[in-house]
Amino acid sequence: MKKGTRIALILGAIPFITMVFALPLVNRIEPIILGLPFLLFWLLAWVVLTPVILALAYKLEKKYNPPEEGEDK
């Protein structure tokens, strides 16, 4: 597997770890953050962070993988 793909996949695992597998640990009301109960805040935070993670994966993949034939910029 190419280095860029590997890095991208590791980044891509983060939303699954935080929003699915960490769920038993975050099923709570306190602490209330930004007025939101903790469970809702946690999920919202990771939904907001997912585009950031994917953008990073996109950049790093481009950087480490040679561009493929016929792919636009």
Partner: peptide
């Protein structure tokens, strides 16, 4: 709350 989160998972998967 699953309705808020599952889309982000689907798009992450779609990226790959």
């Amino acid at each position: 709350f699953y309705i808020l989160a599952y889309g982000a998972l689907a798009y992450t998967l779609s990226f790959f």
